[in-house]
């Protein structure tokens, strides 16, 4: 496929497969064979088991490879594209780095902006309106609900995904992991830590 940057998609696209899946789901729902809630419950049970979950590997690489980290923060999509084994992540993936001074968290107004290739499916609460509105107004309170306590002087920055831009949080590398391999480090990276509603696991903390 050629890269034609003059061409902008101003409407949505569904792949041929997605069209067929949606067609079936609609028909089965209309005919009463399938209840959307029951279907969601099954899918939700597998929310962490969908997608290649490249996020943890990308984060672990950024922790161990300063040149990659620099490239990742400059242009997330491009840097991730240089990792041959990682599948596409779409354009305009912006990686925001957590530091002692600043904690990032991501809210999303639509699930289509959620980088599921990186993170698997979003948790249910992520799509819920109360989470989205509260996260903007009272991020510290939302984080407290998730047992994320930050020092008072840490600034909290909330990023609202749009159709154009999706965000991935680069969490801080846990202490006590000096000399760890990328593979070992990737085990510590949780989905929530890449949304900013959690921290990576500490060494020895159970999965």
């Amino acid at each position: 496929m050629s890269h034609d940057h003059d061409h902008h998609h101003d409407h949505s696209e569904l792949s041929e497969t997605e069209l067929r899946v949606r067609a079936l789901e609609t028909i089965l729902t209309e005919k009463g064979y399938v209840e959307p809630a029951a279907l969601d419950a099954i899918i939700q049970a597998y929310e962490t088991r969908i997608g290649p979950h490249n996020g943890a590997r990308v984060v672990a690489k950024a922790w161990t490879d300063p040149a990659f980290k620099k490239a990742l923060l400059e242009d997330g999509s491009k840097a991730i594209g240089t990792l041959g084994h990682v599948s596409r992540v779409g354009d305009h993936l912006v990686v925001v780095e957590n530091t002692k001074e600043r904690h990032n968290m991501v809210v999303c107004t639509l699930c289509s902006c959620y980088p599921w290739e990186m993170l698997g499916l979003p948790p249910v609460w992520y799509k819920a309106a109360p989470y989205r509105s509260r996260a903007v107004k009272d991020p510290r309170g939302v984080l407290a609900d998730f047992d994320v306590a930050l020092p008072k002087d840490t600034e909290i920055r909330v990023w609202d995904s749009t159709a154009e831009t999706r965000f991935l949080v680069l969490p801080m590398r846990p202490e006590g992991t000096e000399g760890w391999s990328e593979e070992q480090l990737a085990e510590l990276v949780t989905r929530d830590s890449m949304i900013g509603t959690g921290f990576p696991r500490k060494p020895g903390e159970p999965a």
């Binding site: 497969t17 899946v21 279907l39 597998y46 088991r49 969908i50 499916l121």
Partner: peptide
């Protein structure tokens, strides 16, 4: 730990079969 899916639509297809 059980079935794995490469994309969300795969999980939808799986769930529909389970339901039917």
């Amino acid at each position: 730990d059980g079935p794995v899916f490469r994309a969300p639509w795969e999980a939808h297809a799986f769930a529909m079969a389970l339901t039917l």
